[in-house]
Structures are given as structure tokens and as C-alpha cells.
Amino acid sequence: MRRPVRSRLSRHTPSILAALLTAVVSGTALASSPQVLGWVEKGLILPEQVAVKFKLDTGALTSSMHAENIDRFEKDGDEWVRFTVELEDVDTDEDVRTRLERKMVRDIKVRGAGGAEERPVVLMKVCLGNQMYEEQFSLNDRDKMNYPVLIGRRTLEKVGLVDSSKTFTTEPNCSDA
């Protein structure tokens, strides 16, 4: 006696559905894969459009930016900081110096080999790849460091993955900035 066609199909339905679901999920995962960047990338500090080297540092929690002559002051009852950003633009080899003011978000305590210190944290806009990010940056004199901007994990979780074997995988292009 022959089985009806319907029962043979229904017997394979679970495996067919599983294969289709796997194909759909895999295709979706590939389409929405995060970007992969190198451990050093060129980025822009906005709105000044200064191109500098960013170190993508998975060991740091908070991002950090080079700043000198940091002065705290009060404005409209809030804590603010005034600071100088003096950097070499990697595109033009020109030194760019500007004085900025930002409202403080918070203070952080940073512990290192030389002891602990408090640093102000402000919101700054930067361009990395083709995305603009407004993120928290601690301000610190990074003159003796190789990289004036360090991107920490709080920002990296929005940026993508870091491939430690690569550098300079993308050019910053935030034309809307």
C-alpha cells in the first residue's frame, strides 16, 4: 500500500523548516554584521575637523582625549571646563590649536603606576569611519602618548569590532558633520 504524498512531506517538514530558518538567520546575521576596524584608525575631532590617530583600546572603559591647560569654572550653576586641544593634523601635518569649553558630565578617578588622579569628563563629537559619535571623553595631557585620542569600550560597543592585526582600515567621512 502506498502512503499518501502528504504524509511523506509532513515527515520532512521540520527539517525543511529548520534549514530555511537557518538560511534566513545566517543571511540576516551577515547583512547586519558590525564593522571591523583596526586597533589604530584615523578619525576626526569635530567640529574642528582635525584628523588624528585614534587608538581603539579594549582595555580602557572610558575614551580619553588630549587636552592641556584644563580650567574648571561654573556657568549657569553647572560645572564646566575650558581646555586647549593642540594636535598635529595627520592629513596636513599642521599643528592645530583651539580653546574649547564643555559642560562637565562627571569626574573619573584614574589609577595608574604614578598613583590616582581625577579627570573631568565631557561630551565630544568625533568621526570614525562614516559615523559621527557624541561620546564621553576624559580630558588628560596625552602629549607623551603616541595617540592623542583613545577610544574605550563604552564607545567601541557602538562602533564595532577591533581586529588587533590591522591598522587604518577606513577613512573618516562624516560629510553631515
Rank of each mutant, 00 (worst) to 15 (best):
R3C: 13
P4S: 10
V5T: 12
V5N: 11
V5R: 13
R6I: 15
S7C: 09
S7I: 15
R8K: 03
R8F: 09
S10D: 10
S10F: 12
H12N: 09
T13N: 01
S15T: 14
I16M: 09
I16Y: 08
L17K: 05
L17Y: 05
A18Y: 07
L21M: 13
A23S: 12
A23W: 14
V25M: 04
V25T: 11
V25Y: 06
V25Q: 01
V25W: 08
S26R: 11
G27T: 11
G27E: 13
T28E: 10
A29E: 07
L30G: 07
L30S: 08
A31T: 03
A31G: 04
S32K: 13
S32T: 15
P34Q: 00
P34W: 01
Q35K: 12
Q35N: 10
L37H: 15
L37I: 09
L37M: 14
G43N: 01
L44P: 00
L46E: 12
E48D: 14
E48A: 10
Q49A: 05
A51Y: 08
A51Q: 05
V52R: 04
V52M: 03
K53E: 01
K55N: 07
K55L: 06
T58S: 06
T58A: 00
A60R: 01
L61R: 05
L61D: 03
L61S: 04
L61T: 05
S64W: 02
S64R: 05
I70R: 12
D71P: 00
D71V: 07
R72T: 05
F73W: 03
F73Y: 07
F73L: 05
E74L: 09
K75M: 06
D76N: 11
D78G: 08
E79W: 06
W80V: 02
R82D: 05
F83R: 05
F83H: 03
F83L: 02
T84K: 14
D89S: 08
D93H: 15
D93E: 14
D93T: 15
D93G: 08
E94W: 08
E94F: 08
D95L: 11
D95A: 13
V96S: 00
R97P: 00
T98Q: 12
T98H: 09
L100R: 15
K103F: 09
K103H: 02
V105R: 14
V105N: 13
V105P: 08
R106A: 08
D107W: 13
K109M: 02
V110E: 00
A113R: 01
A113N: 01
G115I: 02
G115E: 00
G115W: 02
E118N: 08
E118G: 01
R119F: 04
L123N: 14
L123K: 15
M124C: 13
K125E: 13
G129A: 07
G129Y: 10
N130Q: 12
Q131P: 03
Q131N: 12
M132E: 11
Y133L: 07
Y133M: 03
L139F: 11
N140V: 09
D143M: 06
K144F: 13
M145E: 03
L150D: 06
G152H: 02
R153K: 12
T155Q: 03
T155V: 04
E157T: 13
E157H: 07
E157Y: 06
K158V: 00
V159F: 00
G160A: 08
L161S: 08
V162F: 06
S164N: 15
S165N: 14
T167H: 09
T167M: 15
T167K: 10
F168C: 02
T169W: 11
T170N: 09
E171C: 03
N173L: 08
